[in-house]
Write a protein that binds this DNA or RNA. Structure first.
Lengths: 246, 246
DNA sequence: CGCAATTCTTGATCTGGGTCAAGGCACCCG
DNA sequence: CGGGTGCCTTGACCCAGATCAAGAATTGCG
């Protein structure tokens, strides 16, 4: 591994998001990526692109959280994607944004100019393959989310969201402790409501209920402690022998 | 175009589902596909694969309708994918089915053995590219669906479903008549409920309401006539100046 | 043709979560 | 230090859609 590879990994900017796979990039590919990349920062609440805008870049989330949402005529909105660090934003081959993208917390993106990125993708098949794999993962997440939206009660929705975030945090931190997890909620109550198809009042009430019942503990309003992950898992209502644990 | 290409188009079996793109397949690729393909038929209601099953094929829907659904512990289910003729089933690189797949109506699949199909995909980049494009389309559809599940009223949900099916039918039939469409509903009331996160009683009531209000007309229980597509579009509640019309 | 078995419709009632409203709490800034 | 200004919590009430229940229409099959 040379210096470039190291820097590449550090900044979390690789379109091939799993660090272990980065090793497959050759030095000149990495130089090429470096040549077309630049960083952008956004403050919490700031819009990044609006649905219908032309997008001349694709990007990778370095720090912070962004959301994709869809709006209806009358202002109702539904979050349809949540981007955490290492997630990918934008799609090669499509130059118009199909959703509103908003910085949920303070956010740093590592952007790549789209055209050269696409050309590079055509030349290096393993990037294209990795992109397909990532898209399939997103599709799986979207479908899990559809079950949450369509069939779960408010309490199950909150439990599911907590479980999803806890799992994501755990996989980043490499702490595979079965229970006794804790994390900082990266979302306001309103954003959670938007994610889950609820109102912010219902979110607040159900979080209080889960706290009262000892499923979670709160430290302040944002720090969550999960004393027993299996208990939380039961509260989600999911069929948890059914194989994959995305 | 030689005979093989023609047959290939006719059976709707091309993994590159748009017929116009088929022209990019070379004769020997088509022969190769023919060598690994076989047909299977299912009756309405019959299961095709269960979540967790090993899948040794990918397939293309020739006729009929199939659904992907997810189940919860207690039996609640949510449909997360609807496959109409020319849609693709299965994913290269994943050998365990993540969802239950069921034949909603009588169904014919054109199957390809998975391993040789994957190898072929690696060798022919335009198939891989097309597959990425199809997956991105599925992701867009899933996200539109999330808005439906999370934020729409029962009436808007039914209107949205009618609009989606009408659009699909129209694109297949090449009848781009702005209004005056009609089609056969390929779903039972129960399947529609499962799609929309409703109960079948609510589906029935809302269909009756749309009929009473002249938004749709029914001929029997399954044949739907849309006298004015724009009117239906308004009933969906969608922001219809927002660009793309997938 | 007639008698199930599905599939669909409609009615009556109940309830989870939405809506409206009133504070509480933490942090910033003058 | 005092009064904003966001965020969050809690209460009271209401309604869209679920649930329970009873038939009607359509389909299929002996």
């Amino acid at each position: 591994m040379n210096e470039i590879v190291f820097d590449h990994k550090e900044c979390g900017s690789c379109p091939i998001r799993h660090r272990s796979v980065c090793a497959r990039c050759e030095a000149d590919e990495l130089e090429e990526l470096d040549a077309i990349k630049y960083y952008r920062s956004y403050e919490a609440g700031q819009p990044i692109v609006w649905s219908g805008d032309r997008m001349d870049f694709v990007a990778s989330v370095v720090t912070g959280v962004a959301s994709l949402s869809q709006a209806m005529e009358d202002g109702r909105t539904q979050m349809v994607g949540l981007l955490l660090p290492s997630d990918f934003l934008g799609r090669p081959g499509r130059d118009v944004a199909p959703y509103d993208v908003v910085a949920v917390s303070n956010l740093t993106l590592c952007c790549f100019r789209r055209k050269p990125f696409e050309q590079m993708m055509i030349r290096t098949p393993h990037i294209a393959q990795r992109l397909l794999e990532m898209t399939l993962d997103e599709l799986d997440a979207a479908r899990e989310w559809m079950l949450i939206l369509g069939r779960k009660t408010a309490r199950e929705k909150i439990a599911s969201l907590m479980a999803i975030i806890a799992r994501r945090e755990a996989s980043l931190a490499l702490t595979t402790a079965g229970d006794g997890m804790d994390f900082e909620l990266p979302l306001t109550r309103e954003a959670m409501a938007d994610y889950l198809g609820l109102t912010l009042e219902t979110v607040s009430r159900q979080i209080s209920a889960l706290k009262r019942d000892g499923v979670i503990t709160l430290e302040g309003k944002r720090r969550v402690i999960i004393p027993d992950f299996d208990r939380l898992q039961i509260e989600t209502g999911d069929d948890n022998d059914g194989g994959l644990m995305v």
